[in-house]
Amino acid sequence: MTDAPMKLTVVGAETPLWRKRMMSVISHGLLIGASILMLYPLLWLLAASFRPENEIFTSASIIPSAWSLDAYFRGWNGLRTSFGVFFTNSFIISIASVIGNVMACSLAAYAFARLEFRGRKIWFALMLMTLMLPYQVTLIPQYVLFRQIGWVDTFLPLIVPKFLAADAFFIFLMVQFFRGIPRELDEAAMMDGAGPWRIYWKIILPLSTPVLATAAIFTFIWTWDDFFGPLIYLNRMSDYTVMLGLRTFTDSTGLSDYGGLFAMSVLSLVPIFVFFLMFQRLLIEGIATTGMKR
């Protein structure tokens, strides 16, 4: 991060200073403009959480006519179980999923990207196939399966598949990145007598921080945002996740607390945003910044 701007000065040595300044102003201008477009809906959501209930659907302005924290208090205890419980459940499931996905998917990806074995292409194709079938039709057979093992009503159907690399997206992602790591490194390590495990652990993983961080971020956010899995497998309100809690706020046929819904929606964004901020600095480490020479 620190040396990148320095390099730019070297690269741009022949361009005059004023032109660089102007370019910088233009790109910041563009980015700020785009950010506002991106952000407006979120600001509206934030405003809605502070608004009086009967103003929510009639006003498009960002500034509420009156400010109130009521919705937050109402929402937090609005369902039979406090949102604190839902947050805890979401944390447990999301963190466990991150650990499982990063471990299991990187193992499988290493095999597909770097090791030679018979049947590799067939297994890879089968793995990709699992991505292509809409989940709606495997839902019931899978439910029956988990029920036979006795896992319905627990977090296990939501977590265990992650430790078994069931999400082919991440395997494929890591394969693409692992293949970009120069082969000479493996070969040199092999000369020194390193086996596949050592190469995986000492070379591939350390050089793959960006993609592992990407996988961690996506897993956390997508698990957090998922509501269909929890909807189907969790029956007791004390096991509900935040997303399921939010869905329960709105019943299309009856009375719904929209203020509470928006307040809790805002709160539900906080952990995933913080997680993103924490891990995003890892996104920029890697070959480019660790100064790898080819």
């Binding site: 193992l107 499988a108 095999a111 597909f112 078994l164 596949p196």
Partner: peptide, 17 residues
């Protein structure tokens, strides 16, 4: 080695998917 590294995926694939 290839199949060992793929072991978790195999269990998931044959067991759950």
């Amino acid at each position: 080695p290839g199949y060992l590294f793929l072991l978790p995926w195999f269990i998931g694939f044959f067991g759950l998917t």
